[in-house]
Computed example of a mutant assay.
Amino acid sequence: MRICLLTPDPGHPLLAATAGLLRPRHLVESLDPNAGDGPPADRLGPGPLADVYLLKARTPRALAFARHLEERGAPVINSAAATRFCQDRTGMAELARSAGLPFAATRTTARLADLAEPGFPLVVKSRYSRRHDLVARVDDAAGLRALAERWPDEPVVTQPYLANSGWDQKLWVIAGQVFCARRRSELAEPALVEPVLVEPAPAGAAAGAAHGSPFGPGDLPAERVDLARRVGEVFGLDVYGVDLLDGPAEPVIVDVNAFPGVRGQAGAPEALAALALRVAGRGGASGPRVPGPRGAWWPTSSR
């Protein structure tokens, strides 16, 4: 089989480990979908397409590149449509709640200055997910004004800040196999002007120890495992992350990410390698997975 990684960072630990598992018997290549000039057809060059492409990039150029591959019949994990959909937090919340998923109540506003009587504390996020976007907790009107001055024209979504332990449950799913860790929430403290940037804690036992107890897939209640898998069905994703508030209350989803890092999780490279070979073996006959009950919703904005 010929497997191609669509990424600017083929050395990412998950991708590198997956490639290492595949290379003894298969050809593994990498291609940066953001590099080069011209349309996707010119950047692909001559010759046959790979048997499967793994899309770990979210820029508009990368998504256009993946969509071109799909139009030519190549299987892409995750599909361009599903990857793009998860960048729009408004659409994400609407689809999740319409499907009965316990997603945090989400309100969309064109600008922070337009928020009227928001109620504090609240969580403010850029509507369109991207690197270094806005994610902040705001506790009062002064904090909101400061954010509005720093991000004057940013379309945002707001969610009520829900009491929790200060940690997030990070669930990652690869073809139905669930991995997890606890990570310190970037919203544990309020932000005034700049959102708090928190470096990811080590996964697995180290992250659990920081929280006071080990935390792995065996520690997840069965209903949370089922919930994580249901998210993939609703959003048309094969490789994805689900962020849950960590607390005794009913689970609340606060974010869904297409093809996250899944660092330090034993068995994750093996699961990804097996998925790539399985999809390559199908030859894309089933078509790309896309979000929504009928797979018909494609967001109109990619900002």
Rank of each mutant, 00 (worst) to 15 (best):
D139I: 00
A93F: 06
R130W: 06
G73S: 10
T109A: 13
L101A: 03
R72T: 11
F120E: 02
G91L: 06
A136Q: 07
S98D: 14
E117N: 11
E117W: 01
R97I: 15
H68V: 02
D139L: 07
P118F: 04
A105E: 08
L144F: 08
S98Q: 15
A82C: 04
A105C: 10
L122A: 10
P121V: 04
L144V: 09
M92I: 09
A104Q: 08
A96H: 03
A81H: 09
A80W: 08
E94Q: 12
A74K: 03
Q87F: 10
R131A: 11
R127S: 06
D139R: 02
T109D: 06
E70A: 13
R89S: 07
V123D: 01
A105I: 11
S129P: 00
A99W: 03
A82D: 12
R137G: 01
R111K: 10
I77Y: 12
H132V: 09
R89D: 14
Y128Q: 09
Q87H: 12
S129T: 06
A99I: 02
G73I: 03
A81S: 14
E71L: 07
G119A: 01
I77A: 12
R84H: 15
T106V: 03
A141Y: 07
S79T: 00
L69H: 06
S126R: 07
H132K: 14
A110F: 07
F120K: 03
S129A: 15
T83K: 09
T83W: 11
E71M: 06
L115E: 13
A99S: 14
S129Y: 10
R107W: 09
Y128R: 00
L144E: 00
G100V: 01
L112G: 10
D114R: 08
L101R: 08
P75K: 02
